[in-house]
Design a protein around this nucleic acid. Structure first.
Length: 376
DNA sequence: GTCCGGATGC
DNA sequence: GCATCGGGAC
């Protein structure tokens, strides 16, 4: 089936995942779960106002809670009393105290893993001779070598005319879209952004006015286009209402936007605002750091189970200069050599330093069978 | 047919 | 923890 024409609303409604728009039954479940909290105030009628929807309130509540938790963890880890005991004059810490820059724990208990510099050097060498999708479309590529908030070359790289985007806020917002649309396959993303641009849809204002179905059609080939279109509308509205069409400039506010989690928030902070608060950990960084034995769950030697754990563990020892470049480096490495399935240890030049080298299932057929066996 | 990718709900 | 989202790559 090709992509259906989104002519009528029911077609759209069918496409949108039930999780984005809870069905009446799931809404019922939510209200049951909320019973202790909600029933006392509004026992019977369910209002038509979407803001009164308990399911929505729960989602907002959970999102805020997650955001608060992430921020709290950073704040805790970098409180002066949790850093070195002596008053410290390091610029990073002074900056942190005033909320400017770093949130960098200087815990001296965590020793960097042996040979980590050789590993990074080795990966850099491998990366310079290969070509990974992230090289041609990664956000960092545009950000690192540019002054803050200057995305023009990103757009020029895609054949856009940056001068059509006159206002700084529009650039910021479109950058967020760009990050949201960021995909493995460069052409898909480029075309999606190009189509948005051709329709003058690269500003919060325009997205806010645009029809969701139209946005879906325009970004269609990217993954999760349905939910992304929905989130784009919501983000556009929030950006207009609260940030004057710009995007938020703090981690906490970014995390409150729908569809923006820790990974995206850090990426936007790092590249969009040139304000490094943490490492942007995606599945590649998560997987590779664990394979290398670079990270572990607090107090143990076990692998981390979530990217967030990996981020916290990695930040304990990785020097801050590496916080931004580590992401494109490992993503590229993960796309070409250290692949999720059947890593190519044979061509990997750092396998001598890797405790996981040649240890993961080399046979193509074994993985599905194994998985099935585990499930059953 | 299986994997990918992050956010999210359960 | 695990499924889900959508369609392309393998």
């Amino acid at each position: 089936m090709s992509f259906p024409l989104l002519k009528n609303f029911s077609a759209i409604a069918n496409l949108v995942s039930p999780k984005s728009f809870p069905s009446s039954s799931s809404r019922q479940m939510h209200s049951t779960r909320l019973s202790t909290a909600k029933r006392g105030t509004n026992p019977s009628a369910e209002s038509n106002n979407p803001d009164d929807d308990p399911a929505k309130q729960v989602r907002v509540f959970v999102r805020k809670k997650r955001a608060a938790k992430t921020v709290q963890a950073i704040v805790e880890a970098t409180k002066p009393e949790n850093l070195d005991e002596k008053p410290c004059s390091l610029p990073e810490i002074e900056d942190f105290a005033y909320g400017k820059q770093s949130s960098f724990s200087r815990s001296n208990e965590v020793q960097p893993p042996a040979n980590w510099e050789k590993v990074i050097e080795g990966i850099r060498k491998m990366r310079s001779s290969e070509d990974a999708p992230v090289d041609s479309m990664g956000c960092e590529k545009a950000g690192v070598s540019l002054p803050p908030k200057n995305y023009n070359s990103t757009f020029v790289a895609y054949g856009f005319n940056p001068f059509r985007l006159l206002r700084k806020e529009d650039l910021q917002f479109s950058f967020l879209l760009y990050c949201q649309a960021k995909r493995k396959i460069k052409l898909l993303t480029a075309r999606a952004i190009q189509r948005l641009l051709q329709n003058d849809l690269l500003s919060a204002e325009a997205i806010n006015k645009a029809d969701e179905g139209v946005i879906k059609e325009l970004i269609h080939p990217v993954g999760f286009y349905s939910r992304k279109a929905c989130n784009m509308k919501k983000v556009a509205k929030i950006c207009l209402d609260k940030y004057d069409g710009d995007i938020p400039s703090t981690l906490e506010e970014l995390l409150e936007l729908p569809g923006i989690g820790p990974k995206m928030a850090h990426l936007v902070m790092n590249v969009g605002w040139n304000n490094v608060q943490g490492i942007c950990v995606d599945t590649h960084v998560h997987r590779i750091c664990n394979r290398l034995g670079w990270v572990s769950r607090p107090g143990t030697k076990q692998r981390t189970s979530t990217p967030e754990q990996t981020r916290e563990s990695l930040q304990l020892w990785l020097p801050k200069e590496e916080w931004v470049p580590i992401n494109p480096l490992l993503v590229g490495f993960g796309q070409t050599v250290c692949t999720p399935l059947r890593p190519r240890c044979g061509i990997c030049k750092i396998s001598d330093y890797c405790p996981s080298a040649f240890k993961e299932t080399p046979s193509p057929s074994s993985t599905p069978t194994k998985k099935r066996a585990l499930v059953e």
